[in-house]
Amino acid sequence: MHCTLPLTTGLGLRAPHLADVLAQRPPVAWWEVHSENYFGGGEPIAALCQLRQDYPISLHGIGLGLGSLGPLDAQHLAQLQQLVARVEPAAVSEHLAWNRHAERYFNDLLPVPRVEGVIEHLAERISIVQDTLQRPILLENVSSYVGFADELLSEAELMAELVRRTGCGLLVDLNNFYVNALNLGLNAEAELAHIAGDSVYEIHVAGFEWFEGTAIDTHGAPVSTEVLALLRQALARWGAKPVLLERDTNLSDFASLYAEYCSLDQIVKASAGNTAREYV
């Protein structure tokens, strides 16, 4: 598997913190950025290439829309391909989501209906992306506020099946499983049990907020104690993994985010026994 992230804690890097991070070079083990923020040239990509000299970088896509009907967005995929070639990242990931219908885009991560045809549809598109990028990608589960009647399998079961069919790896977002448990009554621990540890190459944790009785995956609050408990369980079950702290909204200054990163890093190190294990 083409994933060489260190088996320790990483941090999501957002534009407001970029200047501080470039100037201070904090001891963060690795960074993850949203791929789309580095499409094009100029300052953003120059800054990322500079960071890439000192840190492993994970490229995390939010707009490819693997589950959308019709062919993949060729321009988007070409831009991603250029970015991957230029950055040579430690990992490339995308969401198990769709974002386009009838030439109209929806700028959010929409959950795929797990009904007849879903496995073939996604397997085909994941394979196209992997062939284009010439490397496997990591597939991430998303938060869902709605569900579909008569779904054939759970999201974790779908992920496991796509690993078998395409050779992709998994990025397990524990907050998304927990949010889905709150909103849809799923059992997050049972979902994790469907996932084989050797298919997991990255874990995400983040915070959610309540809006009108729905738990929304805003990445705008500290990680909940329930999600931290899931993290301890997952690391105990799967061994050491790269774990990312994501924060996108209600962003404070970098020093506060870094403090949160350090306390998460303590948990990660304690849970995984800080074993250094190489990927094959």
Partner: peptide, 16 residues
Amino acid sequence: AGLLHAARMRHYRANC
């Protein structure tokens, strides 16, 4: 048709 918790679609509309 077939969608559960369809009232929560408003969260997706708001997010977009």
